[in-house]
Amino acid sequence: MHPSARLHLLPVAVAAAEAGAQGQDWLTDAERQRLQAITSPSRRDTFLAGHWQARVLAAQWLQLDVGRIALDAHADGRPLLRVDGDAAPLQVSLSHSGNWLALALADAPVGVDVELPRRVRDWNALARFVFSPEECERVEAADPAMRADVFHALWTLKEAHGKRSGAGLQPRAARALTARPASPAAAEAFGWRFGNGALALALTPGTRLERTEGVAGSPACWHFTESVGSSQGQD
């Protein structure tokens, strides 16, 4: 049986209100310490929203009481779900931008990224920092009115890939990787245009996207290949 994945997108305010209704007894000691270090009210809401929803969605998938689920971290920083203290048979990835929270769960490594830009940037210059030569050409060749869309579609794919591997977005490694369109059957990543930004999901090859909630429209399908003649530059 192929592994499967689920993607959820929801407003932070809704998820934060649900988390707030539970009090804070559900937090682990480590999570409570992290929360105490966060001074921004909006960041506190986002932290609570994401950590509570990860528990709720994992409990629904595993058909367990949510009180048995906890959120820890892998050695590489990726979030780690636990059931009764032991590692759960599920992987989780979280991302937030603006007022939105994205969560992906799968029974294989998974990465998700959502980006809602707040200002106009030099998209060509940013692309040269982390994109392969082929991807840079796509951004530069785009109509100026669409350049930000092309950039964010590729940027979120890079971020999601880094989260899937646990390595994060490392510029040198990112420049050596190219996201190319794929057929649905061969896709290992999916991308959606979202507001003035983008949403991307990177799956372990062979994983089936079983369900999406809160995500509108059909996704673009992608796969990752090694770049030819990638620019090394400086990290």
Rank of each mutant, 00 (worst) to 15 (best):
R82I: 05
F194S: 11
G206E: 02
E159R: 04
H8E: 10
G85P: 02
G20N: 02
A176R: 11
Q232K: 03
L154K: 01
A189V: 09
V228R: 08
L105E: 03
V112I: 11
A75W: 02
S42N: 13
N196V: 11
A49Y: 08
A160D: 06
A187D: 07
L57P: 01
N124A: 14
G162T: 10
G191L: 02
V110D: 01
H2D: 05
W100Q: 15
E226S: 15
E31N: 03
G98Y: 05
D113N: 09
H96I: 05
Q53Y: 12
S42F: 13
D113A: 12
A73R: 14
P109G: 06
Q24N: 10
P133G: 09
W61N: 04
R175G: 11
G162N: 06
R34V: 04
P11T: 07
T46L: 00
V112Y: 02
L116W: 03
D149Q: 15
W192E: 06
C136L: 05
D235N: 10
T46Q: 15
D45M: 06
A142P: 02
E115W: 07
A200E: 06
R32S: 15
F224E: 00
I38M: 09
A19G: 15
A185P: 01
H51F: 07
A187F: 11
A59S: 12
R128W: 07
D235P: 02
D107S: 02
P171Q: 08
L94M: 12
V215E: 01
G85A: 10
P79Y: 00
G85W: 12
E18W: 11
G67N: 09
W52R: 04
E134H: 13
I69G: 00
G166V: 09
